[in-house]
């Protein structure tokens, strides 16, 4: 056989046909055209498309609240990878969720300072109020509880995050009040006055961060992923004579021959 290996995504389609299952239809498509365009912008941030795997998984997570199999396959398709390699990478990271999540993720710190300052009591308070244990989601799909490792807010121990916004010096009472407010649709603000967003909003924000209008388009084309570029193709670098600096800033002392 000399034919090139088929695209694994295509293989899957063929396999589905053979098994008598319906081909993937529009409903299974996770990214609409707008998100596809966004995904292309994210991929363009990196010299190598593979680097975009985490942002794209966040983008998939912003659609359904967690990364479904269809989402994973679509990310693989965009990046030209196998679904298995996307799963391998994605399953390593705790912020990439593999099971359905609530709208609000309550992460209570269980690390050193927070434990010594009473963090375990916060977990007990959520468990009692919402009837869910660590890692579980309420039946109405509103809240998920997780115990988290150090959230880098030890000066406010015991601390927690709700959808990654920080809350300091949390007491069981203040935690329950925040849950009550979120449950009734009221706004809750973090320690630093940031409103708590929903899990999907925050996943989208995480996915699309760092896309700038003024990023040099020239640089994008001059850099290719993973390959060693000859010096004259290195983005932004033009070899100069040792000892001279050309084109210093306006009005600034320039040196040459130094």
């Amino acid at each position: 056989m000399t034919t090139p290996a088929p695209n694994p995504y295509e293989q899957n389609r063929v396999q589905r046909e053979q098994q008598g299952r319906a081909p993937r239809d529009e409903r299974e498509r996770v990214f609409d055209d707008e998100l596809r365009a966004k995904a292309a912008e994210i991929v363009a941030k990196y010299p190598n498309p593979r680097s975009a795997v985490l942002p794209l998984l966040f983008l998939a997570q912003s659609v359904e609240g967690y990364v479904t199999e269809a989402g994973m396959r679509e990310v693989a398709e965009i990046l030209g990878q196998t679904p298995a390699s996307v799963l391998a990478a994605g399953s390593f990271y705790s912020m990439i969720k593999k099971v359905p999540q609530g709208d609000y993720l309550i992460s209570v710190c269980r690390n050193i300072s927070c434990t010594h300052m009473g963090g375990r009591k916060l977990v007990a308070a959520v468990e009692e109020r919402l009837g869910i244990a660590d890692g579980e989601t309420t039946a109405d799909g509103k809240f998920t509880l997780e115990t988290a490792e150090c959230l880098a807010t030890c000066d406010g121990a015991p601390t927690m995050q709700i959808n990654y916004e920080d809350f300091y010096n949390v007491t069981p009472e203040s935690l329950i009040e925040a849950v009550d407010r979120l449950e009734s649709g009221q706004e809750v603000k973090s320690k630093r006055e940031e409103p708590v967003r929903t899990a999907r909003e925050i996943a989208y924000e995480t996915a699309v961060v760092g896309i700038y209008k003024k990023m040099g388009e020239d640089m994008q084309t001059r850099t290719t992923g993973g390959e060693v570029l000859p010096p004259d193709m290195a983005p932004g670098f033009r070899p100069r004579e040792p000892g001279t600096i050309e084109g210093g800033g306006p009005g600034e002392g320039r040196v040459s021959g130094g």
Partner: peptide, 29 residues
Amino acid sequence: AYERGFLGEGIYGSDFDLEIVLHRGAGAY
């Protein structure tokens, strides 16, 4: 910083270009 020319092409009128990519981790110490 891009807007004000501290990043991008030709910083401070030199021929030095710099681009910053902000990448988010996903929860792994």
